[in-house]
Design a protein around this nucleic acid. Structure first.
Lengths: 240, 240
DNA sequence: AAGTGGTCTAGACCACATT
DNA sequence: ATGTGGTCTAGACCACTTA
């Protein structure tokens, strides 16, 4: 007889602590109770609790410091649990542009995008065109397709617009955490919309980044195409 | 009094096991002795030994399977300890091109590259031009600058050539493991050498990838510029 | 049934930051 | 001096694979 539903204690503890953090019981920058108190609360040993906290540390939800305590990490688009901001200026400092949404609509996606989101081409996705702005200059021209499947039914229908920081929004509103993404980089020549919005010349090549974002269950959440003037801004990556 | 040289037992154990793996005592695909035997050998408890093995698992040197045992992972360029191969063909399967070195020489690097390698512009680096070939087609045009600093003195002087799989070579010959890298992606128009070697038209943009590779001590080892026809081949990345 | 890694405990002691 | 997280132990039991 195979037990199919065995969940280790430390994972149950970990998930419960995580849900309490996300629910706001311990806001960012506050301290969690110490190991012994938490272990007592959950009725487990210090070692078991610690193993749960270690995983939360690896996943960047908390930061532990010997002698001090366990601190809840901030959750926003630029924090380490969303390592998806990869833009740098010429001084090599990370930049966080603001976003302007030009258009949103519900539509049936192109076939190749439906495939990537693993949905039927007849399903409707939320489509958005956005530009990203820094110091008054448009630096990024973006199109975004939001899959219906990870969200509760009719969510997209009722979404009239998207906030600037979408990943934090998915997490806070729907508990959907973007845990990883696959990006493909392509060099392209600008189209009409790029030339206008990014203020580039027709013969200046752009970096096009196509990103599929996945939640913790490996369900595709979003497909995003970004075009950047890579002479002006650096798109950088750390591999390890 | 501050102990500055405190090294946890589990790290000592881990490093010793790793050095034994790299020395070839346990070749790839073979089983390590089980936890209790190893713990006994090192004179530590099962828990301490396990913590060392857990880190080696995270770093992909070994693979552990419940009920089976602990297996040594293969070490070559394409294995998971070198996650630096990011090329895919149109069928979305990873490709591993072969390499042809066109030229190597010792020279003083350009200032901006010396900066990135954190060496003096008067230091001499090994410079190589290489192309990478798949199915008879050149798909990648590459320049490579190898820093002298992580290597023993005069190593570069005596290196007449570079093998195809340089990262595995650094590890095997000098114990230098490339642990992470920073990549910057730029869209460029092809130069004369690109047009010839990659067989592209002058108006077809290329993806240029500039990579700085670091060893475990965060010392820059290599600076590499690769140019790819990104219409033909996909350059992909996983973020998490 | 035997052997492996995975989980869990209860308790001790160490290193570090703060008071 | 106190309280925190970090290391370490010795032993028990569980889940999984293979024979």
């Amino acid at each position: 007889m195979k037990k199919i539903n065995f969940i280790p204690l430390y994972l149950q503890v970990k998930n419960d602590i995580l849900s309490r953090i996300l629910a706001g019981e311990w806001p960012p920058h506050t301290f969690l109770p110490n190991e012994f108190v938490l272990a007592e609360q959950y009725g487990v040993s210090q070692g078991t609790l610690r193993k749960g906290l270690e995983e939360l540390t690896l996943e960047k939800y908390i930061v532990r410091a010997q002698g001090k305590g366990t601190i809840v990490a901030p959750i926003d688009e630029t924090s380490s649990i969303f390592p998806f901001y990869l833009l740098y200026d010429k001084n090599n400092t990370r930049i966080f542009p603001s976003t302007e949404t030009l258009k949103t609509e519900l539509l049936s996606p192109p076939v190749h995008i439906a495939e990537k989101l693993r949905i039927k081409p007849t399903d409707s996705v939320m489509f958005a065109e956005r530009i990203r702005i820094l110091n008054g200059k448009t630096m990024l021209n973006e199109a975004l397709y939001l899959s219906p499947s990870p969200f509760p039914p009719d969510t997209l229908k009722n979404l009239k617009t998207l906030p600037n920081t979408v990943y934090a929004f998915y997490l806070k509103e729907f508990g959907i955490r973007i845990s990883h993404a696959i990006e493909q980089m392509i060099a392209v020549m600008p189209d009409e919309s790029d030339i206008q919005r990014l203020n580039v010349k027709p013969n200046e090549p752009l970096l096009m980044v196509c990103r599929i974002s996945y939640d913790v269950n490996k369900i595709p959440v979003e497909y995003r195409i970004s075009k950047i003037n890579s002479q002006e801004y650096a798109y950088k990556f750390k591999i390890n």
